[in-house]
Computed example of a mutant assay.
Amino acid sequence: MELRHLRYFAVLAEELHFGRAAERLHMAQPPLSQRIRDLERELGVRLFDRTRHRVQLTEAGALLLEHVRPVLSGVDTAREAMRRIRPGEAGVLRVGVPPDTHPVVLPTLTEGFARRVPDVLIDLHELTTDEQLARLREGELEAGVVRHPSDTVGLESGPLARRELGVVLPADHPRAGPEGRPVRLRDLSDSPLVIFPRAMAPRLYDHVLTICRDGGFLPGAIRHARNPNFVHGLVLAGRGIHLNEAPATPLPGGLVWRPLAGAPLAWLTSVVWVPSRHNEAIAAFAETVTEGLARAGHRIGEPSAG
C-alpha cells in the first residue's frame, strides 16, 4: 500500500467525483481510476460504489477514510517539520551574532527578518568571531555577524558598519574629566586594560593593541574578561580601564564612558557568508543586520575586505 494511493483515495472520498479529484491531484482521470482499483484489489474490498451519475463511499471505504486521515495529517506534519529545519529559503537560517551585540540590534533583526522572509525561521547563536568563522566553513552556520579585522578569506561580506569606541573609567579616574570631553589614548598609558580574551578574535585583539601602542597607550597590565558585568566589576575595582562603544544602558554607579580623541578605535562589523550558499534568506539577513546596526548608531560604509 503506497502513501500516494492513500492520498488519491482520500481526495476521491472528499470529492466523490473522479473528474474533480483528478483535477485536484493534477493527474488524468484514467490513471486515478486505475490506482483506486489497484488499492481495492490489494485490500480485497470495494471502496466506492460507482454508477454513471454518482460515486459513493462503501462501508469499507468510510472505515478506511477514518484510518487514512490521521496518517495523511501526520505525514503533512512531518513534512512541515522537515521543511522547517532545512537551511535557506524554505526552512531555518542558522546565524551567529557577537556576545556583546547591542540590545537594539536583536529586536530589529528578528522583526525585520520576519518581515522580509516570513517563511524562514531565524536561529540565533551567540558566538565569537572566530567561532562563527569556523562554523561557517564547516557548514554549521549560513551567515555570521563578525568583527574586523578577521580571517574572512573565501567568504563574502556585506557592508561594513563602523561604531567608534570610547573608554569606560572609574568616575574618580584622573582622566575621567567632564562628560563628553575626549580622552587621548596616550593619557591612559600605564593604566591596566580590561579586554576580551584573544581567542575570541585574534586579529581584532592584535589590532586593538597595535592602535593603542601607536597612540601612546602602553597598558600597565592586561586582564581578560568577556562578560560585561565582570568587565564593569573589574573597572569599578580599579583593576583597569575598558575600551568599548557608548553604552546602550546606563553604566553601574561609579563608572563613566568618555569618547577617545580622534576616534582611533572602532568596532567594524559586517555579515559574512560562504559565496556558494548565498540565497534570498542570507541577503535578507544581511539587509536586516545593516538596518539594526544603523539604528544602534553604526555608520554604514563599503563592503569589507576581510
Rank of each mutant, 00 (worst) to 15 (best):
M1K: 01
R4I: 12
R4S: 10
H5F: 09
L6R: 02
F9A: 02
A10G: 00
F18N: 03
A21G: 02
H26M: 01
H26L: 07
P30R: 13
P31G: 06
S33C: 04
I36Y: 05
I36M: 09
E42P: 01
E42F: 09
L43M: 05
G44R: 00
D49N: 09
D49P: 00
R50Q: 11
R50D: 02
R54W: 01
R54F: 02
V55P: 00
T58A: 04
T58F: 04
A62R: 15
L64T: 07
L64N: 06
L72I: 10
T77N: 04
A78H: 10
R83A: 14
A90I: 12
G91I: 10
V92P: 00
G96Q: 08
V97D: 00
P99R: 13
T101V: 15
H102N: 14
T108P: 00
T108I: 13
L109P: 03
T110D: 05
F113I: 13
V117D: 02
P118A: 08
V120Y: 04
D123V: 05
H125Q: 15
E126C: 03
E126Y: 10
E131R: 08
L133I: 13
L136Y: 01
L136C: 03
R137G: 06
E138Q: 14
E138Y: 02
E138D: 12
E140W: 11
E142W: 04
A143E: 10
R147H: 14
P149D: 04
V153R: 13
V153K: 06
G154N: 08
L155K: 06
L155M: 04
E156V: 00
E156S: 15
L160Q: 11
A161D: 02
E164W: 11
R175G: 01
R175H: 11
E179S: 12
E179H: 11
G180Y: 11
R181Q: 15
R181Y: 00
S189M: 07
D190I: 02
S191Q: 14
P192C: 08
F196V: 15
P197D: 10
R198D: 09
A201L: 06
P202D: 07
L204K: 09
T210S: 11
I211W: 01
D214V: 01
L218F: 10
H224N: 13
N227P: 00
N227T: 12
P228D: 06
N229P: 00
F230G: 00
H232T: 01
L234K: 00
L234I: 01
H242C: 13
H242Y: 13
L243W: 04
E245I: 10
T249I: 12
G262T: 08
A263G: 08
A266S: 13
A266E: 08
A266Y: 05
T269M: 07
P275F: 01
N279H: 12
N279Q: 07
E280M: 10
A281Q: 06
A283I: 09
F285Q: 11
A286W: 06
L293T: 12
R295S: 05
A296V: 07
H298C: 12
R299A: 15
